[in-house]
């Protein structure tokens, strides 16, 4: 564990707590892409299948359980209690391409052709693009609530900091895995426009609005 990874994990934790707070406080899931939330649920379920086969640490297990449980809870609540608060007509990104593309990528690019490893690799490729429906929805509406922008910033910073962690781990331990590194880079590049608007507007107290 190093400081980049710890802060990354805490940012990820914070992002979910901010999202839960947003939904509870505004009593609405407006502005949140259900499709992105569904993709994150698939990401965590497929990645943490090793929960039952590999023990790393209490920290590792607790975080995995939290990420699966919270993403499941959000998907469930968006379908139930908050169903009427968000508009599916705005959430029109075709996730079939993301689900299929990640499957193809994991079948071509993986380190071992085993059940667990293929699902783990699938989750890595899928996570890289899981934010696209959310970003697509925001580009259509042209704006976001400030709390939603904070949620997205924390979520984007998490994978961005993981990229820094991988460079640090390579330099200090010689540990290197190019698949998550590449996927983390792709995700960070997809976030570039969002980060720009976040730093230039939201951090200065203005509303998140696309030019």
């Amino acid at each position: 564990m190093n400081v980049f990874r710890l802060v990354a994990d805490l940012m990820h934790l914070a992002s979910i707590l901010i999202l839960l707070l947003k939904i509870r406080k505004t009593r609405s899931a407006a502005g949140i892409s259900f499709k992105s939330q569904l993709l994150y649920l698939i990401v965590f379920v497929t990645r943490y299948l090793d929960l039952f086969t590999h023990w790393v640490s209490l920290y590792n297990t607790a975080m995995k359980v939290f990420f699966i449980a919270s993403s499941g809870y959000i998907v469930y609540q968006m379908q139930r209690r908050y169903r009427a608060t968000w508009d599916p007509a705005l959430d029109t990104f075709r996730i079939e391409f993301l689900l299929g593309g990640a499957a193809v990528m994991s079948l071509i690019f993986h380190t071992k052709f085993t059940f667990l490893e293929l699902f783990w690799t699938y989750s890595i490729w899928l996570e890289a693009v899981a934010i696209l429906p959310q970003l697509f929805q925001m580009s259509r509406t042209g704006e976001a609530e400030t709390i939603t922008a904070h949620y997205l910033f924390a979520l984007g910073a998490y994978r961005g900091l993981y990229v820094v962690n991988w460079i640090y781990r390579y330099a200090t331990e010689g540990y290197w895995e190019w698949i998550p590194f590449l996927a983390g880079m792709v995700q960070t590049v997809l976030y570039a426009d969002f980060f720009y608007v976040y730093f230039s507007r939201v951090m200065r107290g203005k509303k998140f609005e696309l030019p």
Partner: peptide
């Protein structure tokens, strides 16, 4: 030896 790749990250 395990044929599984070890992942210690989240």
């Amino acid at each position: 030896a395990s044929t599984q790749v070890w992942h210690d990250e989240l």
